[in-house]
């Protein structure tokens, strides 16, 4: 495969992730490849590599609706209580977490009952306390309930099941897990997290300043065995004993 072809192959898919410039820049610099002719050429294919059967399955799930309007509205409020917008990044609803929750309960149906029941539980709790459902309650009232269900036990010997509001705690923990996972697998979340991979690059070891921070250093002997990245494109040849010559 020549370098140009390598780059073209590489770029398919990276555009969707918004990494085309980084990818192309990295390739140009590191692989010595040319830049693709057009973005259209680079994004050919699309999708995420489904087999025909998998594609049908996805379509079927997308066509179904599980949560009712009120349930979705409650999920949205809960998601943003769990992950609000702040100076670092947007909110869970900015990252379209509620849509993810709707999909994932169809994909993993064992989440359905705990969420549907939990949503009823929290409405009941709000009604009991404030004679309103959860989303109609004031911010302060909502937080009053959340405070009671947001902290699974952390004391030695104390069991979560024995805490007051144990069912609410279970429900909120699941909401928190799904919200976090939906958020940190979104574009907004990955930026918030600072994951900077999934692009063509050349790994050449831990940056020096990081090594220093951790009080570590590469040993000369180990380093001597490792790839000199300046020679990565030179075709390997060996002597009869397997010593690399190039």
């Amino acid at each position: 495969m020549d370098r140009r072809e390598t780059l073209k192959t590489l770029l398919v898919g990276t555009v969707a992730g918004g990494a085309v410039l980084t990818g192309a820049a990295a390739c140009k610099q590191d692989v010595g490849a040319e830049v693709v002719d057009s973005v259209e050429e680079a994004i050919e294919g699309g999708g995420y590599g489904r087999t025909p059967k998998e594609l049908e399955h996805d379509k079927k799930l997308h066509a179904e609706t599980y949560f009712k309007e009120h349930e979705m509205a409650t999920i949205a409020v809960l998601c943003d209580i769990i992950l609000p917008a702040d100076e670092v990044s947007g909110s869970a609803t900015d990252a379209e977490v509620p849509a993810f929750v709707e999909f994932i309960v169809k994909d993993l149906p064992y989440h359905q009952l705990p969420l549907r029941g939990g949503l009823m539980w929290i409405d009941h709790e709000a009604n009991r306390r404030f004679e309103k459902d959860f989303i109609s309650s004031s911010d302060a009232q909502q937080i009053e309930i959340i405070e009671d269900i947001a902290y699974p036990s952390m004391k030695e010997g104390e069991e979560e099941e024995l805490l007051p509001f144990a069912q609410g705690i279970k429900f909120f923990s699941l909401m928190r897990d799904l919200t976090l996972t939906g958020f940190y697998t979104s574009k907004i979340g990955i930026k918030d997290l600072g994951y900077v991979g999934n692009r063509a690059n050349i790994w050449d070891g831990v940056p020096d300043e990081v090594l220093k921070k951790h009080g570590l250093a590469y040993e000369e002997e180990w380093l001597a065995k490792c790839i000199d990245q300046d020679t990565r494109m030179d075709i390997a040849t060996w002597d009869a004993e397997g010593n690399l010559l190039t």
């Binding site: 590489l10 398919v12 898919g13 990276t14 969707a16 992730g17 995420y48 590599g49 996805d58 799930l61 997308h62 993810f100 999909f103 994932i104 994909d107 993993l108 697998t185 979104s186 574009k187 990955i190 999934n198 692009r199």
Partner: peptide
């Protein structure tokens, strides 16, 4: 090179 959000799950 696909991103997690390219999969609905």
């Amino acid at each position: 090179m696909k991103w997690p959000w390219e999969s609905p799950r």
